[in-house]
Design a binder for these strands. Structure first.
Length: 478
RNA sequence: GGCCUAUUCGUCUAUCGGUUAGGACGCAAGAUUCUCAUUCUUGAAAGAGGAGUUCGAUUCUCCUAUGGGCUACCA
């Protein structure tokens, strides 16, 4: 029984896109679900679009996402090299075989002539002129060193049909197909040729790729047939969109994996979210670890229509992951974002409070901003209908609160809470009234990472009392 | 323009001829809470349009509309 082999074949042109990441994920999930291999192949055949660190970005993204490939340029394997730029001889060999069998031909046409082929509707298709060159003419041009490309010779009649595992059966009339360039004049293959040769030579059984290749797939099948090779199974994937009209693209916003990491999303959460964009697990579960995704993955759950990427839902999922982190782990992740704080506080306590209240690590600066900054908050914050508190009440109650807290030796949350609770009874107030007032008076913020006693415990006795007194002064002056 | 393809709440989706069209995020309301956090409950919210086929269409067929893709010596 042949084992399943899938591949992820990115082009090193920049950061890893979320759409690419999902393609890699699905290919990985399918391979692993079926005890198969997941191969990484770098498609660096376009010398003009190469971007310096893009290959290492691919490695690091795969590593961060925990998508481990069984074969690839960096880990080797039996079907190497896995870098297309190192396989030029291979492509050339098969291209020549195709020329010999008349499934391809040399084309010497200039760019100018090609451009002149544009018809009234702006459509351009090659007219097969060089197909009809006599052997003598070809020899003559070759001898002269004229540059040429090798084109696929597609039949003018008939129909090519294939079955995609997501989109079903698709038929295209051969006369709609173009004589694609297989080998460029610089000797590099085009994607149109390299993907066929490599997928076959690398034993790929299931080709996962974006649906933009749907209409050129017949070209590839004609090539497989011409070479006498078995056609792989296709799994074309719907696009991930920025909104209804636009695909996610590098030019608009944060569409790449590393940007989301930088914004404080956890890789597991991103992967989990992206897996659900265009695939449904046939259950109402939404939270999946990578292993669980492997277990649940099934091609039949892939949808045909494109999906809009919703960062709000990603945030919700990410919050779930953050809450589940062991405190120590959360603290490690959060600590770098505490760096700006100069006031000494108990950072472990801070982490425990913050962990339950954020959706992404990037929410941290805002939620802890009150620690260093206290000046000039609006007294309207004391007004709260629900807690039945007001600035007036605050002015009356704060002196007693300050006195009560001053007496506390063991400045812990429990002690603070007990003291405030007791004071509530003494003053015949609702617990909520007093606690609201103290919280506002000590933080100057509407939204804080914890309640009054927790905030006092966090910033310490001296700082707490200082702020409480300052707030009281402000209230009296108003 | 031609070809390919898609179309269920705002968003991600379920439904594989008969459902009060379900769930999730978000939103709204209520409850809980030391915070307008969390948690819980409830609610509003959808089959692009038109023809057919059928006892019966969101589901099958066709047409139209709209979106997306391809139409490069880019992938």
């Amino acid at each position: 029984m042949n084992s399943i082999r899938t591949r992820f074949a990115p082009s090193p042109t920049g950061f890893m896109h979320i759409g690419n990441l999902r393609t890699a994920l699905y290919a990985y999930l399918f391979a692993k679900k079926n005890q198969g291999q997941f191969i990484l192949r770098i498609e660096d055949t376009d010398q003009e679009r190469l971007v310096g660190d893009a290959v290492s970005a691919i490695y690091s993204t795969l590593k961060l996402a925990n998508l481990r490939h069984d074969e690839g340029p960096d880990v080797g394997g039996p079907c190497g090299p896995y870098m297309q730029s190192e396989r030029r001889d291979i492509y050339k060999k098969y291209a020549m075989a195709l020329v010999d069998s008349s499934h391809a031909y040399r084309c010497f046409c200039t760019k100018e002539r090609l451009d002149a082929l544009v018809d009234g509707t702006g459509n351009r298709r090659y007219d097969k002129r060089c197909l009809h060159l006599s052997p003598e003419e070809v020899e003559e041009k070759l001898a002269r060193g004229a540059p040429y490309v090798i084109r696929q010779n597609v039949p003018q009649e008939g129909i090519t049909t294939f079955s995609d595992l997501v989109y079903g059966e698709i038929s295209i009339e051969n006369r709609e197909l173009h004589d694609n360039v297989l080998l460029k004049s610089d000797g590099f293959p085009t994607y149109n040729f390299a993907n066929v040769v490599d997928d076959h030579l690398m034993g790929i059984t299931h080709v996962f790729r974006g649906m933009e290749y749907l209409s050129s797939t017949p070209n590839y099948n004609l090539l497989y047939e011409a070479l006498g090779w078995a056609v792989p199974l296709y799994v074309h994937l719907p696009h991930i969109m920025r909104d209804k009209r636009h695909k996610l693209s590098k030019r608009h916003g944060d569409a790449n994996f590393e940007d989301f990491l930088g914004k404080g999303f956890l890789p597991e959460a991103i992967l989990n979210y992206v897996a659900l964009l265009g695939w449904n697990p046939k259950s109402e579960v939404e939270k999946f670890s990578l292993d669980e995704l492997v277990e649940a993955f099934d091609i039949s759950g892939i949808s045909k229509s494109s999906a809009v990427f919703d960062e709000v839902k990603l945030r919700w999922l990410n919050a779930q992951y953050i809450k589940e982190l062991p405190l120590q782990r959360f603290h490690e992740l959060a600590a770098p974002r505490y760096r700006a704080i100069s006031t000494p506080v108990d950072f472990n306590l801070l982490s425990a409070l913050v962990q339950a209240r954020i959706s992404a690590l990037s929410d941290i600066p805002e939620i802890i901003e009150f620690i260093d900054s206290f000046e000039g908050y609006s007294l309207e914050l004391f007004e709260n209908k629900n807690a039945k508190s007001s600035a007036q009440l605050a002015k009356e109650v704060l002196p007693a609160a300050i006195a009560a807290l001053e007496g506390i030796e063991n400045w812990s949350n429990d002690a603070l809470f007990a003291a405030l609770e007791q004071l509530t009874a003494q003053l015949d107030l609702k617990k909520k009234q007093l606690l609201w007032i103290v919280r506002i008076a000590v933080t100057g913020r509407l939204s804080t990472p914890g309640g009054a006693s927790e905030m006092c415990a966090l910033i310490g006795k001296e700082q707490s009392l200082c702020r409480l007194k300052q707030s009281l002064c402000t209230l009296c002056a108003a």
